[in-house]
Design a protein around this nucleic acid. Structure first.
Length: 197
DNA sequence: AGCCGGATCCGCT
DNA sequence: GCGGATCCGGCTT
C-alpha cells in the first residue's frame, strides 16, 4: 500500500503529485490525468470559501478522505481532501484513464463513444467508479475506495486556469488546474461562461 | 419565502 | 456550438 502522507499539504502542492495516481472503487480503477486544486476558506472558487457547512464538512476534516458533492441537480463529483484537519483544502478529480474494470466502466457509461471518454470529466469519472454521496467522507487509505500514489512522477505536467471557476480567484489568477499533456482523457479547456436563463 | 446560478453532461444543430 | 435537465446552497426580501 502506497504511502499517502504527501496528502498532508496544501491542495496546490498535492495536485500535481496526484497525476498518475490511481483511484479504485466498485471494481473499476482509474489513473488520474487531470485535477484541480481548491484552497479552502481563502479561495473564492472553493466550496469552503464561506466557512464550514453541512455539504462541505468533509473538506475541513483530515487529509486522505473523499469529498463528494452533488451538482446541477444530477451529477456527483469527487475530491481528495488534503492538508491538516480544520483546514479546508481539496483536489477535484477531473479526468482519468480506466485501467481496470473496463467492462463495468462501459456498463456505467453506455453512451461513451470511446474508452478515453469513460472518465473524461469530473462527473463522468465519479460515475464510472460508482461513487455517490453515500461515499462522502470515506477514508481512502483503509476503506473500500482506495487511492494509490503514482509509482513515478508524471513525465510531464501542464498547468492552467481552472475550468469551471469564473471571477476573482478563478480565471487566470492562479494556474490551479493540472494535467498530463497528450492524454486522450483530458478534456479540452473550455473557459467558464455563465449559463443564460 | 423566493430567486439565482453552479467545480456538468448530453443530444441536437 | 447551444440549450435543457433538475436540485441545492447561499443570499436577498
Amino acid at each position: 500500500m502506497a504511502d499517502l502522507a504527501f496528502l498532508e499539504q496544501d491542495a496546490v502542492d498535492v495536485a500535481p503529485l496526484l497525476l498518475g495516481a490511481t483511484l479504485r472503487a466498485n471494481g473499476v480503477r482509474v489513473r488520474l490525468t487531470e485535477v484541480e486544486a481548491y484552497m479552502g476558506e481563502r479561495d473564492p472558487g472553493s466550496h469552503a470559501y464561506r466557512g464550514p457547512g453541512r455539504r462541505n464538512a468533509t473538506m475541513f476534516g483530515p487529509a486522505g478522505r473523499l469529498y463528494v458533492y452533488f451538482t446541477y441537480g444530477m451529477h456527483y463529483c469527487c475530491n481528495v481532501v488534503t492538508g491538516r484537519e480544520g483546514v479546508a483544502s481539496a483536489v477535484l478529480l477531473r479526468a482519468g484513464e480506466v485501467v481496470e474494470g473496463l467492462e463495468l466502466a462501459r456498463e456505467r457509461r453506455p453512451n461513451a463513444a470511446r474508452d478515453a471518454e469513460l472518465a473524461s470529466g469530473p462527473a463522468r469519472l465519479t460515475r464510472v467508479l460508482g461513487i455517490s454521496l453515500a461515499d462522502d467522507g470515506t477514508d481512502l487509505a483503509a476503506g473500500p475506495i482506495r487511492l494509490e500514489a503514482a509509482p513515478d512522477r508524471a513525465p510531464a505536467i501542464a498547468s492552467g486556469p481552472r475550468t469551471g471557476v469564473a471571477g476573482p480567484g478563478g480565471g487566470l489568477e492562479f494556474p490551479w488546474r493540472f494535467w498530463i499533456p497528450g492524454e486522450p482523457s483530458v478534456s479540452r479547456y473550455r473557459p467558464h461562461v455563465a449559463r443564460r436563463r
